[in-house]
Design a protein around this nucleic acid. Structure first.
Lengths: 156, 156, 156, 156
DNA sequence: TTTT
DNA sequence: TTTT
């Protein structure tokens, strides 16, 4: 019965977060995260391999994501694997795997000050204007949320 | 580019490993692992939630799995998320997520000596006779494999 | 500022937990945990290497430890590194590193039912009688504590 | 016997790495890493707590550290706890805990291009000129080392 | 001694 | 779809 289900990721967002404010008052953010590994194949050529992860963040976390994360943002994520299963129209069993984020931390913000925060690619047309990625203390959520390490504990 | 993609699981096998010896000489073992978490809901009732993970082990690892793991075995797993994507007959994009195991460790075997190793449920009819789960050093694979912590590093 | 400090251990207790009930009402348990790795040296000989960790558990966690953990118990631990620094009598800077446990899970108990729970080494003379290591749901702490995954979040 | 001893850190270097080239040909780099966590105390005041870790890197890893890491660099580290024990002159048992790095990844380099790489504080007087922190592929070690994820597997 |  |  004793179980551990833990995921640790460091990667970059493929898009701006998609945030939904539900009627219940809950907020959910869906984020796609790329983790890329590079290695040499047998011929000595450099090969890159990218894995795309579907992240799910809730409530306080989702709000911080909405406010501070953008396409290209680099984050550290701790979470767990969580799958939904259902039957499709053909009666086939289907399964969708997501990472339920338990906490995340923005990375690399220190050096963003000198240049365009997030770079030119971080604020594509479909998104609202990006906030200052440098995360000055003054722009911290007054709710007491912690930009740098956002936790949100639901039972599952 | 800097990426981290790490999964840590502790759980029990849902079935005996399914092992295939490929013509290429490679060996692959597919394992289903359950991680269960328990919590109290708002009414104070104990609720259990089980997540099933599809694990993939290769070569030396797969051989150790074949020899020592059985339905019910408790293991610690370190691996990474790895997905296959394709189009189904309807032209829909499909994605299958697996955990590529990088190393695993058998748990709890130390105290299993006194009773039936693995318990009555650990050796269903479709499987070969289970070996002694207590893993005495003497029964270690002569190939130099390490029963307790099996690693197998492929680039991806 | 963004920081991550995470430790994951699987090992066995070197002694029964040492538990102190403080006047403040807090409870602290000190636990020594051995993690052993085995490898082959250049000559092909099997070598074992054991690292001893000093764990610190508080309150609900400490109570569960007091009640259920014994010398020899195998546990999964998640925690963080936490050091105390001071000057000794000679004026030298000293540092003591501990693992502050954030959650732990008892391992291997499921299959222990058939034999002596914990095995002969798990209940040395200096300790109180060991409880049933099999952890039936019925023997769970009525306080709502979760034997299988004990969490306790202090700020640091 | 089955053991897991894993440490995961994200933090910033307190100093430039101290690198020693041993007569044996081995190279060792000692690095101090700060992991900072912030939280609100009972009065709602923001409190910061910094833990300092002593990291040890060897060979290929150490060379990459020497070349690319500087005071202030942010890295992701995976390693294990490793302690040395000895008796001091007074005959007291002493123990020194280090993190043996198994792999590390440089973080946040993407946005360093626009400004001064590493910032003004990253290259203090006592250090050699910092290399371009942006890690162009062209400056990669020809030895096949991977700047972004450096691994080095010794048995212990 | 870092970082924000 | 990210990043280098």
């Amino acid at each position: 019965m004793a179980g551990v289900n833990k995921v640790i990721l460091v990667g970059n967002l493929g898009r701006d977060p998609e945030v939904k404010h539900l009627e219940s008052g809950s907020v959910v953010a869906n984020v796609t995260l790329a983790t890329t590994e590079a290695y040499k194949d047998r011929s000595g050529n450099r090969v890159e391999n990218t894995e795309w992860h579907d992240l799910e963040m809730w409530d306080g976390q989702a709000k911080v994501a909405e406010q501070y994360l953008r396409k290209g943002s680099q984050i550290f994520v701790e979470g767990k694997i969580k799958s939904d299963t259902w039957q499709d129209e053909q009666g086939n069993n289907r399964k969708k795997v997501r990472i339920r984020v338990l906490s995340f931390t923005m990375l690399g913000s220190r050096n963003a000050e000198g240049g365009a925060p997030g770079g030119s690619s971080s604020n594509a047309g479909q998104s609202q204007p990006a906030p200052n990625k440098a995360q000055p203390a003054a722009s911290m959520p007054s709710s007491g949320g912690n930009i740098d390490d956002v936790e949100d504990d639901l039972p599952f």
